[in-house]
């Protein structure tokens, strides 16, 4: 399972990459693997204000619909429109294909997120629980 060192992670399997006052948000390799072939991403609207833990958008596979939660608070400034045409990009490379870019309202919130090591441990626990 691919868990890049430089990213921060949520318990609900989103990742965050910070560049200046902007945060790139996507789903992890663990998430895409367990969801299976993704068929649709309902992208958030630009200019939408979200708080950390709010539903940012939803993604669908054939037999599931899952909410994606925002790792941090901020305003949506950009969405990845490539995903509109092919949600499968998230399966192909979940880290290169971010979902949305947020303008962070409080960059220190990122400190509440897990680092790669902590996230790896979290995933292992979940795998175990799933049997």
């Amino acid at each position: 399972m691919n868990i890049p060192e430089e990213l921060r992670y949520t318990k609900t399997h989103e990742w965050l990459r910070i560049e200046g006052n902007k945060g790139y948000v996507g789903i992890t390799d663990f998430a895409q693997h367990h969801l299976g072939d993704l068929v649709f991403v309902e992208l958030p609207e630009t200019d939408a204000e979200v708080a950390a833990g709010d539903v940012l958008c939803s993604i669908e596979s054939v037999k599931t619909a899952s909410d994606i939660y925002s790792p941090v608070s901020g305003k949506v400034v950009e969405v990845n429109e490539d995903l509109e045409d092919d949600a499968g990009l998230l399966n192909e490379d979940p880290y290169a294909n971010w979902i949305a870019v947020l303008e962070l309202s409080d960059p220190s919130e990122a400190d509440n997120l897990m680092d790669a090591a902590a996230y790896r441990e979290h995933c292992e626990k979940e795998e175990e629980a799933m049997g």
């Binding site: 068929v39 649709f40 669908e60 596979s61 054939v62 037999k63 599931t64 619909a65």
Partner: peptide, 12 residues
């Protein structure tokens, strides 16, 4: 497009 429907999305 079954992910829209009640048997998957339930209350949503």
């Amino acid at each position: 497009l079954q992910a829209r429907e009640q048997h998957i999305r339930r209350e949503k």
